[in-house]
Write a protein that binds this DNA or RNA. Structure first.
Lengths: 238, 238
DNA sequence: CCGTTTCTTAACGGCCCTCTAACGCCCGGG
DNA sequence: CCCGGGCGTTAGAGGGCCGTTAAGAAACGG
């Protein structure tokens, strides 16, 4: 049974979230402030965090950054639709997914399930990616195509794929992708990123024109389909 | 039971690491500074070191170099992900592996196990390499060509081949090759390496112009094809 | 001390990788 | 209906990396 830490300052909304999650079979821990959330996260080691931006004390962004320093537990962000840029900032700080308010319980639970599904892939160490018939071994830097022929990826292509594979099935913000694959100097220029995504799709996707594994999240970033990681023979995604 | 020295300046993260490692059955010694780490390493003789870069006093890189001066215990480096050059520097200083923050406990433990497993088996590298019709016996320093005639390799050629053969099928970084085949002084000069790769290919490859066994990974290093090791047709081995 | 082998260094040419610019497409807003 | 943002796609320029060759320096052995 998974444990979820809910960080939300409004008591009534917190109650709704708790009821919803408990009814779905999760254990729930609550925190009303960022400071309290840090303490609870460290002591309870939750499997997932649900964080509302716009907390009274300090920024939710800082909370995400702090937790990301020592935990890989997925972080889902709750954000009002009016704060689009904040959503991107949160993802850039290390959040894994977002749910915009107002949201339905079905959508929330679907995203929670999707995020938790990543957990078992942690043990597999994400070194082996399966794009249909094309397989990439990130550790050995080897790739083989449908007919067993070797597929060649360039160093930069491996770097981009590496960052995406770190959070399979979850969103990686463009700035984060740029920072980790290119360096802190070029987080503002996404042109090169688009070119490399294209060439990765050409080499790995069965039908590059209709991406099935390397997916675009418009305005935010990219993500890998969750079933590229070995061991997750899963159902359809949200 | 293995003993691990954890070098980490943040007390809370240190606590997380200790809990994780103790739960997995390791004995743990801790150090908060590089100076302290040197003392503990010398007195406890740990089987493995877990070093966080970015320590308050002195550089983590210097610590690695210092320990490498008198110990062969595997060193795992822990670091934030933003600095790509730091990774190269650490590995070049003698670190064995690199774990980026944030990390999952499963991933950390898997890498610890892998490092400990690799350590004693350092002497198990294959001594017989099969390049198609040309066979090299690394232990006896003898090689025979397609017609059974002897093939002569120079001492330095054997040294390069030795390093590559230690990790068959895996990429060996240029700097690592230079460090292990030439010495730490010449890790910056890859010109000689290219010359020796060329002469090795001339002597061992069936078609030197189209390398099939000694492969180039542009921007990274070289590697041996995994089927040069005896056991392609039969897997029996000592 | 000389000849041979081995290693180092230099120079050049070519290929691959990366970056940049330009254009087209889709979509949502004015 | 036009316009602008964001993404996909293509092509080309530039630079860096590697392969190759050859000649000089160093080590080695008589």
């Amino acid at each position: 049974m998974h444990q979820i830490l809910v960080v939300e300052d409004q008591p009534d909304l917190r109650a709704v979230l708790r009821t919803t999650l408990v009814a779905a079979g999760y254990r729930v821990v609550e925190a009303g402030t960022a400071a309290r959330a840090l303490v609870e996260a460290r002591s309870h080691k939750p499997d997932l965090l649900l964080v509302d931006l716009g907390l009274p004390d300090g920024d939710g962004i800082d909370l995400i950054r702090a937790i990301r320093g020592w935990s890989v537990a997925p972080i889902l962000v709750l954000s009002a639709r009016t704060r689009e840029t904040e959503k991107v900032l949160a993802l850039d700080a290390g959040a894994d997914d977002y749910v915009t308010k107002p949201f339905g319980t079905d959508e929330l639970l679907a995203r929670v399930r999707a995020a938790l599904r990543r957990a078992p892939s942690d043990g597999h160490h994400r070194s082996r990616l399966v794009f249909g018939a094309t397989v990439v071994d990130l550790e050995r830097r080897q790739a083989t195509g449908p007919a067993g022929e070797p597929v060649h990826l360039t160093p930069q292509e491996y770097r981009v794929l590496d960052v995406l594979a770190r959070r399979p099935g979850l969103i990686v913000a463009q700035r984060q992708l740029l920072r980790e694959a290119w360096g802190p100097d070029r987080v503002d220029d996404a042109r090169g990123l688009r070119v490399f995504v294209k060439s990765l799709r050409d080499k790995l996707e069965p039908a590059p024109a209709i991406p099935r594994f390397i997916l675009t999240e418009i305005g935010v970033g990219y993500r890998l389909a969750s079933d590229v990681v070995e061991g997750t023979t899963d159902t359809t995604d949200s």
